[in-house]
Design a protein around this nucleic acid. Structure first.
Lengths: 347, 347
DNA sequence: CTGCCTAGTGTAATCGATTACATTGCCGAT
DNA sequence: ATCGGCAATGTAATCGATTACACTAGGCAG
């Protein structure tokens, strides 16, 4: 392996000069810099990033601590962050917490041990994620999914507003008793989406019935179970709001098994747009988050902090967008102009 | 920050003994080891992984170099690999090549610079990916998606067999002129899936018509364009085989725009099972790869190499599974027992 | 002409853990 | 009693790059 010493020898300078020529060329005489560059070329020298990290006490690596990269939304977030980081020669290390505090903690510790330059994370708990511990170490952090992250930079996709818009729409489109299936009880995004649902109900003057919402792990199986349970109620809901795309899959399975038709028997809206949403029958109304952009912006904020920005915490809020499709619109048998009746959604 | 020196001082031993007590406890007297453990506890010492990596000349990190983590299949592969790696205290760094050789090369170099312990990769090109370069550096590598990777360990999901099975099924289910939309011309998995398609045609005694296959970047847009082009042919196909799930999305968009009904006008089969496939109308026949397991097995092979295994290259082949659903079965108007006719797939 | 400043470069310490090699002391064999 | 051998521990070199500090030479002001 060719080291900086070899380059120094080849260029007839000291190792210090090599470093300077490569990282701060303006501090080195032009002909010297040229000789160094030539030697680097000739020998195929590449700096050992581990040694650099040790000396600088920080690696050109950022930790991405997410609920679950298998969720389409987070894949896109990661991809957005990764692309932005790569542009600045940073690498990304991914950690899946599955929204479990102990896993979150363990990963954060490993990341600290690896001297990462910063962390982008979706806190597993609104109250118990230990951001202070990171902050004390002077480690830049950007949180996602937390509306008010206090002293920490954050990118927030307005979950509450998105959920509220979706549920208001369900109500306006004919629903009388919408239910909500959300994520974990302590999970910030799950709380906010439930809060949005409740806000919409209150706004419409409807009572809040705790039977009509369910906490899950944001996965298909628990989504399916939750929907089955909702339809086992004495008074089942006539509309469903699903707090992410995996819960939607579970819900669709449950509805199919129960023989309930969408939108005739139940109307439906879901968080998270994916390419297949418009291709389902009926197409599904979704709340679209700009996932890629969330990742990108988070990376930018983080890179600025890493670069030394020491100003007050910045909070970026991105508004999600409601994409209305026919799953959420109850066909009105009394309205002959109701477009939804023109399409046959049977099966 | 508490270093090994602090621990040594607190335990009244040398730093060498601390290291030994922590990594090879059997070489240290029990009471000494206890004192060291106690000191570690008291001080909250955590080894600096960067320093360790520098000295050991290898980091507890593995590079995952994939086409694109935004593809559901690779997400699962990554998740499988990551879970297996974490169990052995390795971290994963992800790199998206988008099947471009220059990106692949750049990422491999960065990974080498970071002293990763090994690499799991889907080569961007069957012929030009520079595996030898890695091998020369003694870096363990596991390839995915390459049937015969020579001297390098590999996990192969039998793309050709999977594609062949799907196309045979299309033919048996009534198709006469199936088309194939695959990935990039040099991309191993894309080649193999096309080869499987061709194999099925040959087997059925059908001619190979180059007009009936198309190379793409494995993304929705090019999938849509390819399908539109196929249906602009003087003699359009009556069945489509899509080489991944993103191409399927593009195909469905194109078919909808063209007003072609599935399975009446065209039958359909796609590589890659995702949770929504069974929920589409009609449900889509897919070739299911055991993506999570592919990642897991690859990680295991790699960890064995990292652990010193020096035997001959191992090649694991996983057989994908054909999941037959109604998208691929052409309703037969002359057969009164044809079950597919019992379901109304209109719109 | 002297002294100060600066540009350019070199020397050597440093980051923190690991490990080759050296040392100590004890046991059992001769 | 002596010595080989081994268990337990310490000393110090090492991994490769960065950087604090030191030095030199030339330019310029006084």
């Amino acid at each position: 392996m060719v080291t900086i010493r070899d380059v120094a020898a080849a260029a007839g300078v000291s190792t210090a000069t090599v470093t300077r020529a490569l990282t701060k060329p303006e501090t080195v005489a032009t002909p010297t810099a040229d000789r160094v560059r030539q030697a680097v070329q000739d020998l195929g020298y590449r700096p050992n990033l581990v040694a650099r990290s040790l000396r600088r006490r920080t690696a050109q690596v950022v930790g991405l601590v997410m609920q679950d990269i298998e969720t389409p939304h987070f894949m896109s977030v990661c991809r957005g962050a990764e692309d932005a980081l790569r542009e600045h020669s940073y690498s990304a290390t991914f950690c899946n917490t599955d929204d479990k505090l102990d896993r979150e903690r363990a990963y954060l510790e490993v990341l600290v041990d690896q001297s990462v330059a910063g962390i982008i994370m979706t806190p597993a708990s609104a109250t118990e994620s230990d951001l202070g511990w990171l902050h004390d170490r002077g480690l830049p952090v950007v949180t996602l999914e937390m509306e008010l992250s206090g002293a920490v930079d954050s990118v927030y996709s307005d979950n509450q507003a998105g959920a509220c818009a979706a549920v208001r729409h369900l109500l306006e489109a004919g629903a009388a008793r919408p239910a909500c299936v959300t994520g974990g009880r302590d999970v910030p995004s799950a709380q906010d989406r439930l809060a949005g649902y409740q806000q919409a109900l209150r706004r419409a003057g409807l009572p809040l019935e705790p039977d009509l919402w369910a906490f899950t792990d944001y996965r298909e199986e628990q989504g399916e179970a939750a929907v089955r349970a909702l339809f086992a109620l004495p008074q089942p809901p006539d509309a469903l709001f699903l707090a992410n795309s995996r819960l939607l899959v579970g819900a669709l399975r449950a509805l199919r098994a129960l023989g309930r038709q969408v939108p005739d028997d139940v109307t439906l809206a879901s968080f998270d747009e994916t390419p297949l949403m418009e291709l389902l029958t009926p197409p599904v109304t979704t709340v679209r988050q700009r996932a890629y952009e969330i990742g990108q912006r988070a990376a930018q904020l983080l890179l600025e902090r890493i670069g030394g920005y020491a100003g007050p915490a910045r909070h970026i809020t991105l508004m999600p967008e409601l994409i209305i499709r026919s799953s959420s619109i109850r066909p009105d048998p009394t309205d002959p102009t109701d477009l939804t009746k023109l399409t046959d959604y049977s099966q």
